[in-house]
Write a protein that binds this DNA or RNA. Sequence first.
DNA 1: GTTATTAATCAACAACTTGTTTATTAAAAT
DNA 2: ATTTTAATAAACAAGTTGTTGATTAATAAC
Lengths: 207, 207
Amino acid sequence: MSDKTDRRQARTKQLLYQALISLLTEKGAESITVTDIAMRADINRGTFYLHYKDVPDMLEQIKDEIFGKLQSLILEFDPQEVAQFAFEDEPYPKLVRLFEEVERNADFYKVIFGPHGDISYAQRLRTFLYSHIFNKVSYSQPREEDMLIPRDYLIAYISSANIGIIMHWIESGFNKTPYEMGLIMTQMVNHGPLIASGIREKPHNKR
Amino acid sequence: MSDKTDRRQARTKQLLYQALISLLTEKGAESITVTDIAMRADINRGTFYLHYKDVPDMLEQIKDEIFGKLQSLILEFDPQEVAQFAFEDEPYPKLVRLFEEVERNADFYKVIFGPHGDISYAQRLRTFLYSHIFNKVSYSQPREEDMLIPRDYLIAYISSANIGIIMHWIESGFNKTPYEMGLIMTQMVNHGPLIASGIREKPHNKR
DNA sequence: GTTATTAATCAACAACTTGTTTATTAAAAT
DNA sequence: ATTTTAATAAACAAGTTGTTGATTAATAAC
């Protein structure tokens, strides 16, 4: 937006960000007051209004910024590429980059998906993933009559499932590397839960 | 809890409930004031405090009540039974009952999963489903080394996926009957997304 | 039906948050 | 060294909160 050259501005903005994240671990966004943030950041209350209109505005700006990065990564995903890497038992590199991006903003994701988190962020991610998958699946499997269930419900299933994997990783405290997570998701996307669980057999493999 | 024989109390409580649901379509729970609810319900503000401690308390009581019903239905699910019905191309009756219960509280679910919804309710459902599936899967597929991915990530995938189906139904405005939804979920649970999508072939079938 | 109970109302309270404004201080850019 | 401007401090009316005491009226119990 505007110039961020001034060190004072950058410092204040960072203090406000940290204060908001910290408060979000304790209570919901909508019950966080400007006074709360100013006190925790040790910043004059009036200073807050020099940067943001109000608390919802602050949260929205932060969410937009971080969501944008995820969005551009997801746009590059290609199911056919995933299949190639799954065949080699290797993680799809673009998926690894996704998990790296999430890890980079670990603090944010922990609170936004946490107990006092923001349902609209998860919803936005789900909707975006849904529309992306929709385009890809419609292309590779266009005949609705060959499907056992309606296409939209299949896509809702897949998008929620993959977001569930990400959420589980976050809730576990990032107990795997982005590389490991990339491999897990690559296999799930390609084989589905039944083969991945070992209930059904894997068709063919190199090693 | 206490006696609810007095018609005045029941009436007031219902008016408060309707007002809260109505307000939740417009803004988040934590920014809803007692004044808001009282005004919309056309009830004296002091009367609210005769029923609830504050707004979070009211929401918590409502959530507990409705979640309890879902919980008891989920506890009865048995994967083996699901397989039998899936084989016959029929919906698992206990799943149909689940969707009927959700439909019964349609107003609630629409707002709780909506844009101004409550992340903790979805989280609670997800966690409960997770632990239920965990017990069942550990029993039928106990060897972790036979699995392509860690068991906990498999279960996170499955539980989120199924909640995604429910959410999609709600967001679609309940465009299918509980029977149809039961059939969709029965097939997804039993066949997984790859077979359901028609990418992989279904093994055997009666008709 | 009459009476006793109690739910709901109304009005007023101090304490707190909000968004805004004014004048002042001090850090950064030039 | 000087100018610019970010941050501070103090004060404002308006709105919300949780509580209280007195009053009204619907309901339950007899």
